[in-house]
Design a protein around this nucleic acid. Structure first.
Lengths: 340, 340
DNA sequence: ATGAAAGCGCTAACAA
DNA sequence: TTGTTAGCGCTTTCAT
């Protein structure tokens, strides 16, 4: 009866059984190394008999590449990020990389996550919706670990970044709303400090200032997600200066506002009130909502991030660069048509 | 001017700068090793000056533990899995583990994923919504790598499993529907071979056979997700034997059916037709839908999986075991109340 | 408490 | 093509 393979089989034991050297074993498992068909065969037989699998970590120690990419995920609220995660995983897996995943809640522990990932000698680093500190980014650069920031701007950081043109989004949104006859705009956003939102907000303000009869009646922060949206709808509507259009920084928030307006308050959307979201998640297209929203070019952003990281993995001399993807407004049923 | 830290700093260089041995450096970075306060201080200074971080991989080679848990994710459709992923990440991170993530599309490449993970010497393995082969599971057992299957039954496999009581769910659903006066049930499921669905389907059939005046008018497979649901609604309604209740194997599918019924076909739900989902994703509770569905005890399942894996990581002698979490029907507005 | 030496499992440079 | 040797960066006996 054949003995069950023991706890961990090493190249040493395979070599012994095959009657060759450990180098021969190594070579059989290395692409493009020179081994004769005969030894190769002997090794393969011995290996499968013992259930041998090369230890990727020991290997990485010497080839100085782990084929692992670190991924720091700071935002999960939005379904849109799940999609990113999935595609990142698929794309890198296809290229022979594994994803080492770390979650971060506050912006401060992004650095912790990056540090941990660095200790695991990841070949590259993807940071979604968060930004490591200046010092941390420098440390990455020093160890030669390329970093790509997704949905955060790099600025002076030694890292590539993928964002979308938020100012453009802001301008488009306001223009569309004004053309449709709305005049009293309210902004609903999540955390106050998020740069993408600030840029957008600024652009909205700028767009507004061009139309003297229109105004921004509110700019509330700290509202993110369906429940928060549903709550804020009532608050805004019952305020001293009720809006006739609400712009939300995320789709789930906008859907909450929409249900709050229609169901809780009996408001006619888009007749009395316009609601626009941000992201274009699948649910926004669903029949019961048909939310007018800004389509984030998620796939384009992912592809840019993957391509850049892969390129810099292949050639470490390549400099990091900022990339911007283009978003566009998708017109559905929560804003009046401009002609009516 | 202080020299920038070079590409990779090793314990050797730190030892040199601190004027101690490499062992001393190692001890400083190892919990509970005996180092004098003085050397410790010297090492720490040298380390921070050079920007030294211990190489976790080299370390793992000798301590025979990587502090990495492999996660194979086979299903992303359902938002519910995102939540799992997030919580797994958070929980293991809190325990000092990293997650090494691999995606698998077909059931066959689950084995590939597991093999890859094994080569990376993961300490444990989480497989969500898929099942490795008998042989693969044995290989894991041989290398002493504990495996937990989430949402798939282990049976003879050498692995723990977390499922929920599908037969119970099936019984509850049918009972509820019959009590509310529905008689012509249709089932809409995803891939035909999924065991959880089969169990549920069997239970539904069993429940039905107890009511002689009720029948199962359809059992269609291959429909998963909102779009598919919306399509199948029309197909069922226009078929020779239209149902008066549709049970879906996932919430997104059910929401698609719901929109298809109400919006595309003008059907009164729950008056003319009942729709019930499975999973209780956040959107199902949203105002525009209020879907009656089965609440999957996701958090409970996660906690069971995490606890079991952690326990078996700590004590490899612990045997794998099957665990079942309990689901319950949440009554909202897409099924008539039993009393009406 | 500390250093020297051995070795985790592997690959790469060098000879043969 | 093959084996021998050295060593990746670390931890861990074992003396001291």
């Amino acid at each position: 009866m054949k003995r069950q393979s023991p706890n961990k089989v090493t190249s040493h034991e395979v070599a012994a059984l095959a009657g060759v050297s450990r180098s021969a074993v190594s070579r059989t498992f290395t692409q493009g190394a020179s081994v004769s068909a005969k030894t190769r065969e002997k090794v393969l037989n011995a290996a499968s008999e013992l259930g041998y699998r090369p230890n990727a970590l020991a290997r990485s120690l010497i080839v100085r590449s782990t084929q692992m990419v670190g991924l720091v995920m700071a935002e999960w609220q939005n379904p849109f990020y799940t999609r990113m995660l999935r595609r990142f995983s698929e794309r890198f897996q296809a290229e022979g990389y594994q994803l080492l995943l770390l979650t971060s809640n506050t912006d401060t522990d992004v650095d912790d996550a990056v540090r941990r990932l660095l200790q695991y000698q990841v070949d590259g680093l993807l940071v979604v919706s968060a930004k490591p500190s200046e010092a941390m980014a420098r440390e990455c650069a020093n160890t030669g670990t390329p970093v790509v920031l997704v949905n955060r701007l790099a600025k002076t950081l030694q890292a590539s970044s993928v964002t979308c043109d938020n100012a453009q989004i802001g301008r488009d949104t306001v223009e569309h709303l004004l053309a449709a006859g709305y005049r009293r705009l309210a902004l609903v956003r999540g955390a106050p400090g998020v740069l993408t939102n600030i840029e957008r907000t600024d652009a909205i303000r700028a767009g507004l200032s061009a139309a003297p009869d229109a105004e921004q009646v509110a700019d509330v922060t700290g509202y993110l997600g369906y429940d928060a949206g549903r709550r804020v709808a009532a608050e805004l509507w019952n305020s001293a200066a009720p809006p006739d259009a609400i712009i939300c920084s995320s789709d789930p928030t906008a859907l909450g506002v929409l249900d709050g307006a229609r169901i809780d308050l009996g408001i006619d959307v888009p007749g009395q009130l316009a609601v626009v979201g941000m992201g274009d998640i699948p649910q926004s297209g669903w029949g019961a909502y048909r939310l007018t929203t800004v389509h984030l070019p998620v796939d384009e952003m992912i592809d840019l991030a993957v391509a850049d990281l892969l390129a810099r993995l292949a050639d470490p001399e390549l400099p990091p660069r900022p990339m911007v993807a283009h978003a566009n407004l998708v017109n559905r049923d929560t804003v009046r048509s401009p002609h009516s």
